[in-house]
Design a protein around this nucleic acid. Structure first.
Length: 475
DNA sequence: AAACAAATAT
DNA sequence: GATATTTGTT
C-alpha cells in the first residue's frame, strides 16, 4: 500500500514538467512551510531537510499552537505539513474547517498506511497524504501543490520576495505581516456568527441605514481581521434580506386584506356586483343555510322549479335535517339523522348550487350578500365538475352558473367560469372560500333553530347570520 | 477611491 | 448556502 502510494507520487512528479521548469531555478526558495509533528526529533529532522530545499520552515510540536498559527497567521504560510496519529473525528473536522476558511494546502503525514486512512483524510480536504517515514523526494516536491499559485501569484509578481531572511521567521504571534497580495492564502472566510452580526447590526443602526456604508461600519464595528470587502459583502446580503422581508410582509398584508367583506344590510344586485368587488376577492358574511336536501336527491334536480318537489331524501337515506354554515372561511354541513348529529366539512370538490327563492320565484344572488334571513336552497350542480358553489341566475333558472369557491383575481378563467359568464355578468371569484377549517366556527344547530320557530323541509330554506365562533364542533 | 448592485465563483 | 470576488456603473 505504502509503496503504491509512493510510486504514484513518483509518476506525479513526472507530470509537472512545466511547474518544474518554472520553478527549478529558485522556485522553492522561501516556500513557507508550517510543520507539525509531535515527535520533536523527527521534527528537527524534517526541518533540516526542508531547509536544505531552501524552504522557510516553521516547526511546531504543539498541536494547538500549530492550529492557532494556521488560523491566525495563514498569510505566513504557503503550505502545512501536519502529522496525525490516527484519523480521529475531531481532527478531521478541524481539517475541514481549516480548509473552508483558508486556502493553504494541507498535507497529512501519518504512519498509518491504510487506504482507508488516506482516503479519509484526503476526502476531508488534505492535499496529499504522506506515509511516514517520509522520503526526501516527498519533501522536495511539496511545491507541486502550489504550482499554479506560485506561477500566478508569487513568482510572476515578485520573485525576489520569496527570499526571506530566516531570522524573520514567525516567532511572535502578534507580529503583523503585510503580505496579503503575495500570499497564496486566501482571505480568511469570515464567519458571521451571532456576535459578529450583532456588531454589524449595531453599527448599522448607529449610523442609520441610509448612512451605513461599509467603511464606516467597519470603523464602528472595530473588529480585527475583517476587511471593508467583508463588510460590503455582508451589507449587500443584509440589504437584500431586508428587501425580501419587506416584500413578504407586503405580500402577506395583501393576502390578509384581500378579502372584501360586503356591507351589512346591503344588497348587491347585478351590475352592482362587479363594481362592488372591483376584481378583489370577496368574503361572504356568515350565513346559515338550513334544511338542505341531501345531495343525492338534489342531483336529480336541474330545474330549480322542480327542486321543491324533489327535496325529500331517498328512502332509507334521509336526513331529518341538514344545515350548512357558510362563511368566508368555513363551510360546514351538519346532518341530523334521527337523533344523531353528524358534522361534515364540505369537500372543496363538491359542487353546490344556490337557488334563491321567494314568493315571486327565484330572485337573485344578491341575497347571498345580505345579513337578513333569506330563503335559499342548495342543490347539487350535476353538470359541471370542479370546485364551485353554484347559484341560479335570476330569470334564467334553467342555467345555473357557477362560481368557483376559490378564485384569485388573476386566476385564469376555467371552463366553469365561462359558463357563468355566458349566462350572466356575475363575475368570477365573487364567492371566495379560501379554506374550510372544521373547528374554527360552528353554527347554531338545526335543533336550536327549530326551537326558534322552525321551518319546514319543503317550504324553503333559511339563511341567517347566527354564526358563533366556538369549538364544540357541532356535536 | 468608494460605493453599489448584479453576476459569478468558491 | 453563505460568503467572496469580480465586474461594470455611478
Amino acid at each position: 500500500m505504502a509503496e503504491k502510494h509512493h510510486d504514484e507520487g513518483g509518476s506525479n512528479r513526472e507530470c509537472h514538467p512545466n511547474s518544474s521548469d518554472v520553478i527549478s531555478g529558485n522556485f522553492l526558495k522561501g516556500l513557507r512551510v508550517l510543520v507539525f509533528d509531535k515527535d520533536q526529533d523527527y521534527l528537527l529532522e524534517l526541518e533540516k531537510y526542508l531547509k536544505d530545499f531552501l524552504y522557510e520552515v516553521t516547526c511546531c510540536n504543539d498541536e494547538e499552537r500549530a492550529m492557532y498559527l494556521l488560523r491566525n497567521h495563514r498569510d505566513r504560510f504557503d503550505i502545512a505539513l501536519i502529522e496525525v496519529q490516527k484519523t480521529d473525528a475531531d481532527k478531521l473536522r478541524l481539517l475541514s474547517g481549516i480548509r473552508s476558511e483558508m486556502d493553504i494546502p494541507i498535507i497529512i503525514m501519518s504512519k498509518d498506511d491504510s487506504l482507508l486512512s488516506m482516503a479519509n483524510w484526503m476526502s476531508h480536504g488534505a492535499c496529499d497524504y504522506l506515509i511516514k517515514p517520509l522520503r526526501t523526494e516527498d519533501l522536495r516536491f511539496l511545491f507541486k501543490h502550489l504550482a499554479k499559485k506560485i506561477q500566478g501569484n508569487r513568482i510572476m509578481e515578485d520573485p525576489d520576495e520569496q527570499v526571506k531572511d530566516p531570522d524573520e521567521q514567525v516567532k511572535e504571534d502578534d507580529h503583523e505581516l503585510d503580505r496579503d497580495q503575495a500570499s497564496t492564502a486566501k482571505k480568511r472566510r469570515v464567519v458571521w456568527d451571532d456576535g459578529l452580526h450583532k456588531k454589524f447590526i449595531d453599527a448599522v443602526e448607529y449610523l442609520g441605514l441610509a448612512k451605513a456604508v461599509p467603511k464606516k461600519i467597519l470603523e464602528i464595528m472595530n473588529v480585527e481581521n475583517i476587511t471593508r470587502e467583508n463588510v460590503a459583502s455582508h451589507l449587500q446580503k443584509y440589504r437584500i434580506s431586508i428587501k425580501d422581508k419587506k416584500n413578504n410582509q407586503i405580500k402577506t398584508d395583501e393576502m390578509n386584506q384581500s378579502l372584501l367583506i360586503p356591507q351589512e344590510g346591503r344588497m348587491y344586485v347585478r351590475e352592482e356586483v362587479p363594481n362592488f368587488y372591483e376584481g378583489r376577492n370577496v368574503q361572504f358574511p356568515t350565513h346559515h343555510i338550513n334544511n338542505i336536501p341531501h345531495p343525492s336527491v338534489q342531483q336529480h334536480t336541474m330545474n330549480p322549479n322542480h327542486l321543491t318537489r324533489h327535496l325529500m331524501p331517498p328512502p332509507g337515506h334521509h336526513h331529518d335535517g341538514v344545515s350548512i354554515a357558510v362563511s368566508g372561511r368555513n363551510l360546514v354541513m351538519t346532518h341530523q339523522h334521527h337523533l344523531h348529529h353528524q358534522v361534515s366539512e364540505f369537500n372543496a370538490e363538491e359542487t353546490l348550487a344556490y337557488n334563491n327563492f321567494n314568493e315571486d320565484g327565484p330572485t337573485n344572488l344578491a341575497s347571498l350578500f345580505t345579513q337578513n334571513s333569506e330563503e335559499v336552497s342548495l342543490f347539487h350542480y350535476p353538470q359541471q365538475s370542479g370546485n364551485g358553489v353554484c347559484f341560479t341566475i335570476p330569470n334564467n333558472p334553467q342555467n345555473p352558473a357557477m362560481a368557483p369557491t376559490t378564485i384569485p383575481n388573476n386566476h385564469h378563467l376555467s371552463s366553469s367560469l365561462e359558463v357563468m359568464n355566458v349566462h350572466q355578468n356575475a363575475p368570477p371569484s365573487i364567492l371566495h372560500f379560501t379554506s374550510f377549517p372544521s373547528t374554527s366556527y360552528t353554527h347554531t344547530s338545526y335543533l336550536n333553530q327549530q326551537e326558534n320557530g322552525g321551518f319546514n323541509f319543503n317550504s324553503g330554506y333559511f339563511v341567517s347570520n347566527k354564526f358563533e365562533p366556538k369549538h364544540e364542533g357541532g356535536r
